[in-house]
Amino acid sequence: MYKLSSLQAARGLAALMVVAFHSLFISAKYVESKSFPPEIFFFGQTGVDLFFVISGFVMIIAFRNKFGKKGEISNFLKGRFFRIYPTYWVYFFAVFIIFQIRPEMMNSSQSGNIDLTASLLLLPASTLPLLMVAWSLIHEVWFYLIFAVILLLPPKWVLSAFSFWLIAIIYASLFTATPENPYLRVMTHAFSLEFIFGALAGIAYLKLSKRPASSPLAVALMALTGLGAIAYSLSAGTVNGSDVIQSISLERAFAVGGGYTLLLLAFALQESNNRLKVFSFLKLTGDMSYSLYLSHILTLSVCGRVWLSLGLTGSGAWGTIVFWAASYSAVILVAYLSYRLIEKPLLTLTDLYKKPKFIKQASPAKGDT
């Protein structure tokens, strides 16, 4: 019941959405094509919103029987540490070497102003991390710390704890300005709402999946409502060019995060009722989504520099097709090799530290980023 391929496929979709979003910047820098990528790829930035929702959902499913049990907080934090940091550090140090040799190539918009200690430890800072995509991991680390505290509570208090967190974030978003302090900014950021939505959906799933098969009409209505919320966010411009690292609007959190939450819950219920089959490609992409997320900008940038060095910029429609076919193939290949040669071996190695058996058995818990 709880090995949900739909969550893993959604994670793969989220990673591909982020790749699509960053394609726009690679195209502007190296390809100079107006025909591709299309402007709709800008919405791909909400792949991060989807990641946060999935993360909350997965945490509830994976640790459903651990709330209020002695010693679980230590097991949880150790498991999350080994899931996030070792693979991340491989990419951090690879980029760090480049930064030492050619600092102008890394985060040039910040003129090389990077807090290396914060980047290494995934701590909030006033500048972007050295590996830029790691800004979302900083939020994940915060979510895990709060979840660890909630894990101390008996099961009957878990819903109340998430509800209290939800109200606190809404209050902060409505009545306080975006804090200048980077720690406070992360703590009060409305992205937390999306993790909470996912956790609440996980709680709902655990209750609903134990009942007789859900009505197809009710599940379809849930999915349509989620799609409607996503469509609204597209038409209303809630996903715009504002700096999401600083803050997002409550409208975006509810429309995008809420929409994805309803879709995830609907698909999970369909799968529990044996009414949903998941594409194997998306499931595989979900398995390697962490490696894909960490590596894709580096891969796209290398492809762009090679293209530029060959003097093929502005080579027309066929040139654009060739570039993106080659680049997207390289992104998938590098991510797969990273997953097989770096991520999985590191996870196997860290199993020597007695990572809790229930984490290893809960397949949706893989790649919570």
Rank of each mutant, 00 (worst) to 15 (best):
S5A: 11
L7R: 06
Q8C: 08
A10D: 07
L13Y: 00
L13G: 08
A15K: 05
V18A: 04
V18S: 05
A28N: 12
K29M: 06
E32Q: 13
S33Q: 03
P38M: 01
F43T: 08
T46H: 05
G47I: 03
D49R: 05
L50R: 04
F51L: 05
F51D: 14
F52A: 11
F52R: 03
F52Y: 02
G56E: 08
F57H: 02
I60E: 10
A62M: 05
F63L: 11
R64V: 01
K70F: 00
L77A: 08
R80G: 11
Y91R: 01
Y91S: 14
F96L: 15
I97T: 10
I98Y: 00
S111Q: 12
N113L: 07
S126I: 02
T127K: 03
L128K: 09
L130V: 04
M132G: 15
M132W: 00
A134W: 01
I138C: 07
I138V: 15
L145V: 11
I146W: 07
L151V: 03
P154F: 00
P154Q: 02
P154L: 00
P155V: 01
P155N: 03
P155E: 07
L159F: 05
L159E: 13
S160Q: 07
S163N: 10
W165I: 08
Y171C: 11
S173K: 15
S173L: 01
A177V: 03
N181T: 07
L184D: 12
R185D: 01
V186S: 05
H189I: 06
E194V: 08
F195S: 10
I196K: 11
I196C: 10
G198V: 04
K210A: 13
L217P: 02
A218N: 10
A220S: 14
L221W: 00
M222I: 09
L224H: 03
G226H: 05
G226V: 09
G228C: 10
I230F: 06
S233Y: 01
T238W: 02
N240D: 15
N240W: 00
V244A: 13
I245E: 14
Q246A: 12
F254E: 13
V256C: 08
V256N: 10
L263Q: 10
L264V: 03
F267W: 05
A268Y: 00
S272Y: 00
S272A: 15
R275M: 01
V278F: 00
V278Q: 08
L284V: 06
S289K: 00
S289T: 03
S289P: 08
I297L: 12
L298V: 10
L300I: 04
C303H: 02
S309Y: 04
L310E: 14
L312Q: 12
L312S: 13
W318N: 14
G319C: 09
V322T: 11
V322E: 03
W324V: 04
Y328L: 15
A330R: 04
V331Q: 05
I332G: 11
Y336W: 12
Y336M: 14
L337W: 02
L347D: 14
L352Y: 02
L352C: 07
K357E: 14
K360M: 06
S363H: 02
S363E: 13
A365D: 11
A365N: 09
